[in-house]
Write a protein that binds this DNA or RNA. Structure first.
Lengths: 97, 97
DNA sequence: GAGCTAATAAGCTAATAAGCTAATTATTTC
DNA sequence: GAAATAATTAGCTTATTAGCTTATTAGCTC
């Protein structure tokens, strides 16, 4: 399992969140993703590595390209766990002691 | 509203998450919080400032001390918003419902 | 106001992370 | 195997952040 550190840190960058958003519509290749941004290709590649480490995306080679795919399970588990951890007895809605 | 940047960045540090955990049991003074950690007092004070900026805690002066209190609403809103944003058609609460 | 305590701000150092360009590793194609 | 394309890794620079120590602000007590 990815650590909360890795997950939250990965999400703290707007470019990376934008990459995740881009992947909502389906898997895309690294180059395809990089083409959507102004940053240089290697820069996006490194962002993708951070997202991979955090297990927010999965990468799979498909012939000559590598397809990245959104995976929200780790995020959801991290958040759920963290909410329970923060507010053990409580409701999930609003804080209400 | 605190930006997602601020919220996720604040949560990316284990010391800060531990501070939040500590505040589950109720409001505490800065000094009281700092006493629970090995780090120097000003260091914890700065972590608290980061948490304040992210609106994950609220600070209220109470006589000579300042009381910090956990506030989970921003976190919950950020996460909820982000999940919807990520997974527009999908379920929000629990994955697989 | 002087003295005391609680907390933050300022200033510094070391480590981490983002961005670039150039070089390297895979994979397909000829 | 050489050439071409896709993607990552390496190396560098700059900016941010965590940690410390010292200095300053805010409130209380006398």
């Amino acid at each position: 399992m990815a650590t909360p550190d890795a997950v939250f840190k990965a999400l703290a960058d707007p470019t990376r969140r934008e990459i995740l958003r881009l992947l909502r519509s389906g898997p895309r290749s690294s180059g395809d993703i990089a083409a959507q941004f102004d940053s240089a290709w290697p820069t996006i590649s490194r962002h993708l590595a951070v997202l991979r480490d955090a297990e927010l995306v999965t990468a799979e080679r498909n012939g000559s390209t590598i397809l990245y795919e959104l995976d929200t399970t780790v995020f959801q588990e991290t958040v759920e766990h963290f909410l329970n951890w923060l507010n053990p007895g409580g409701s999930h809605g609003k804080r209400r002691s």
